[in-house]
């Protein structure tokens, strides 16, 4: 303190009203906090992901439990569960010799090397890009499909929505829809996670007789097999869910794969 030239360079001994000190303290606080938050997020991510993964698996099991006749179906087919395949979405072919369990679709969708850009005109789900491959879970019976579960994702009002869509053997009738991840407005859009709302889905048909995908979430009273009641106050979340299904059932999503299944089975 005795040497004025020295104290001028001593940051902490500056007057608190000094602009350099104000900017300096603000920057130091920001940098310190940013490092703290970033390291917490990075270090804890593997643990959090493991929880999310476990939750997703639990929801899938819970969804299969709610399907009517699932027990008999399993007993009848003699299978002890679903078989998971990896599908090349563009060609609709099943990729052999690749373990579905090792494939991380979310990572592949975010990695610029592997991600496939979705043309704006087809990007109903507002995803911008998707992974080239996708896991599908199939319950087989007599070489055909008895039930198929497709992972889908899209954009709601404010968050990414992820869901599992189970289709019956006709590959058009919804057996169940389970939302596995969402961050929509609490109490409004987030109610797409309610079992009551998801119970509206079984029996709905995605495409009409001409093959056009017409499933929709509507305001007010739904009518016909292609409509589901929306949630009041969550119009855009409802549209997000409908657009997500339209995209994934369409030609850029699982469309080619489902066409192949219809033509020639597995």
């Amino acid at each position: 303190m005795a040497d004025p030239t020295l104290s001028r360079w001593r940051f902490l001994s500056r007057n608190n009203d000094d602009p350099v000190k104000i900017v300096g303290v603000a920057s130091l606080t920001a940098v310190t906090c940013a490092v703290l938050v970033a390291s917490a997020a990075t270090l804890l991510e593997p643990r959090q992901q493991a929880h999310l993964e476990a939750e997703r698996a639990a929801r899938m099991a819970a969804m299969l439990d709610t399907l009517p006749g699932m027990g008999e179906l399993l007993a009848e087919t003699g299978a002890d569960g679903l078989t998971t395949y990896l599908v090349d979405l563009a060609s609709g072919q099943i990729v052999p010799d690749m373990a579905a369990a090792d494939y991380d679709a979310n990572a592949a969708a975010n990695d610029p090397e592997t991600a496939v850009a979705i043309p704006a005109s087809q990007d109903l789900a507002r995803l911008r890009q998707r992974a080239p491959l996708a896991p599908v879970h199939i319950l087989e019976r007599d070489g055909g499909v008895a039930l198929i579960v497709l992972p889908v994702s899209g954009t709601g009002y404010q968050s990414r929505i992820e869901a599992l869509l189970a289709l019956e053997a006709d590959l058009n009738t919804v057996a169940a829809l389970t939302i596995t991840a969402q961050g929509e407005t609490a109490g409004l859009g987030s109610r797409i996670e309610d079992p009551d709302w998801q119970a509206l889905w079984p029996g709905r048909e995605l495409a009409d007789a001409s093959g056009q995908i017409v499933i929709d979430v509507v305001r007010g009273q739904a009518s016909g097999p292609h409509q589901v009641d929306g949630i009041s106050g969550a119009t855009r979340t409802g549209h997000g869910v409908a657009d997500m299904l339209r995209y994934w059932m369409g030609p850029h999503g699982f469309g080619p794969f489902l066409d192949q299944l219809r033509d020639g089975g597995l």
Binding site: L12, N16, K21, I22, V25
Partner: peptide, 8 residues
């Protein structure tokens, strides 16, 4: 606290 400028 001694180094937090009053204005910010």
């Amino acid at each position: 606290r001694h180094h937090i400028p009053h204005v910010i």
